[in-house]
Amino acid sequence: MSAQPYGVIATFESSAEIYHAAEQVRDAGYKNWDVIAPCPIHGMDKAMGLKRSIVPRISLAGGLTGFCTGMSMIWFVDAFDYPVTVGGKPLFSPLFAFPVSYELTILFTAFATIIGMFVVNGLPMHYHPAMKYPKFRRGTDDAFFIVIEARDPRFNAANTKALLAKIGGKDISDLEA
């Protein structure tokens, strides 16, 4: 055990247990803590007091970039860089440029969403202290954990463990950094 542990972790066996436990950790005023679950649990964001994800803003930025890229690219290639009249049609019109711009809107939104999700989540991150927990493997199978980090201002090894025990946590242990 190093001098400064990463935090403490506790196991819960069902989604109902972890949901109510998370509400109590939230109400105890902790900020730097997390829930680990094998699947998204409906309502857990509220139970943890999380704010709405900012990923949609990144997506919107990506979509707008895509649309502008499409329109300006088509204007540049067909009406500016090398204008060629085809079939008596205008050199540039937003109407015929629309389908390609529409597809690029979607393409850029998809990339922005996924890259945004990774960046906001801090992934890829192949090591995390929670992975050293002997039961961690079950976190991607059928168990639920609460991790409370030592850097939380309210963290106190004894009190935090007592709280986790009170709310039904099992196998409470310290996590090395």
């Binding site: 857990m44 989540n121 992934l123 192949h126 991607t140």
Partner: peptide, 20 residues
Amino acid sequence: MGWRGSNRHWSNYEMAYLIL
């Protein structure tokens, strides 16, 4: 990518999935 089932991640992930 080092996915660990964190609910803070699930929250963004679910949003990204919905947008996709």
